[in-house]
Design a protein around this nucleic acid. Structure first.
Lengths: 228, 228
DNA sequence: TGACACAGCCCTGAATACAATTTCGCATAC
DNA sequence: GTATGCGAAATTGTATTCAGGGCTGTGTCA
């Protein structure tokens, strides 16, 4: 077997630390506003502080952590910040879906249709984690059709940064999500960019009340996790 | 005086390294595709490799450097990548100007008008560096009016990543730039979002021929810098 | 009993040390 | 003259060490 160093993971120690931490942050293994203890975390990951800090610095640059003068910590669930994230995502998703409408091939649209069909079948019984995966799959395919790596990466970053809230908001939106995905797909197949944009605008959480409710639910969720 | 460590610079060693490197990258002190020599660079900055590498990792996360399995290097002037950057910037600037049109106060618009007036007076004789500063000032004010830190930061990052090409394209566009800024401002003052977007779309380099010409000119510029 | 002072521990930021790999140069053989 | 192989230098990635500050906890004094 081609394992150069330790077990199956790829890349350098700092890259593995980065991947592991990103995963844990998305899964809310750390509380909002929590301070990162470098020695403890390094011990957990069984690495030294040097590659750990390199990973932490990357995560700061991505907005998944913040640099508090002395030490790193998890971003707060700041209301305005979450609003901004949703708004930014909304705008970029709309631009992306327009480009996808122009550039996606019929084959890609057929594949997306197939994917959506399977998603809708799977959706009613799927876990929220799985729902998020499916959601990411749908939006990711559209982003790929836009043929723009920069927009794709930007969207991916925004999604990372709102992962918890998105997770929260997904519960109780199973059917809505799938049917809205269906609408978007129909407009894409009809090559009606304006309609696709409108459907996307409707799809993405954009009413402040809804976002605020998700934030509050997220607080509850997070503190439940930390206690129970 | 409140100097905690060395001379007047603020923040930690790695933060100063980050700021210095970002500055040098924007000024094209490194060639596209150039490999970074850590020991040499650390010696230049008179710091050790540890904070230097932390800064390099942040720059990688921002797309100002790339991680080549072993070591870091400056991104290539890849044609598709530059197209994508311009397209992404175009879309986000358009979304931003629409929000600014809705949210900017009359006072802010008056201030922007004043800024533009001074810019137009200064423009004919200004250096390209100064022109870029003025351009950043104009777009930055619009981004501030959009009241969205995430979009603002995203735009700032994209601008960093296309700084060289933007610099190149600016020369020979003095009057055009200023008059297009004027158009955008007029539509903002009229609160006509669609017209402002159209003007912005026209303003930002979006024809592939133009971008390609800028890329080629950038190659010439860069290699002139490295030789002469 | 409460507030303040001090000592010791803990934590971060940076430098240095170390190991592994790659690259470069030179010499030798064909 | 060119290709090849070996060895040394250089370079990166990671661990360890060191120094400075901040926090905590306790003891003492009012």
């Amino acid at each position: 077997m081609p394992s150069t160093k330790k077990d199956g993971k790829d890349g350098s120690t700092s890259q593995r630390a980065y991947a592991a931490l990103r995963e844990q942050l998305l899964r809310s293994k750390f509380l909002p506003n929590q301070k990162i203890n470098e020695v403890a975390l390094a011990a957990t990951l069984e690495i030294s502080r040097t590659p750990l800090r390199e990973a932490l610095n990357r995560l700061v640059a991505e907005g998944l952590l913040v640099d508090r003068g002395r030490g790193f910590s998890v971003p707060d669930l700041d209301q305005k910040r979450v609003f901004d994230l949703f708004e930014a995502r909304l705008e970029i998703e709309c631009a992306t879906v327009r480009l996808a409408c122009e550039r996606g091939t019929d084959e890609e649209l057929a594949e997306l249709s197939e994917f959506l069909k399977e998603s809708m079948a799977e959706s009613p019984d799927a876990s929220v984690d799985r729902l998020i995966e499916l959601d990411i799959g749908f939006h990711g395919r559209i982003a790929a059709m836009a043929r723009n790596k920069v927009l794709q990466q930007t969207l991916s970053n925004l999604n990372d940064r709102m992962h918890l809230i998105r997770w929260i908001a997904m519960e109780g939106r199973r059917e809505r999500t799938q049917s809205q995905h269906h609408d978007i797909l129909q407009h894409l197949c009809a090559r009606d960019a304006d309609a696709a944009i409108a459907a996307m605008r409707e799809h993405i959480l954009h009413r402040n009340d809804d976002i605020l409710a998700a934030i509050k639910a997220a607080y509850g969720h997070v503190y439940t996790l930390s206690n129970g």
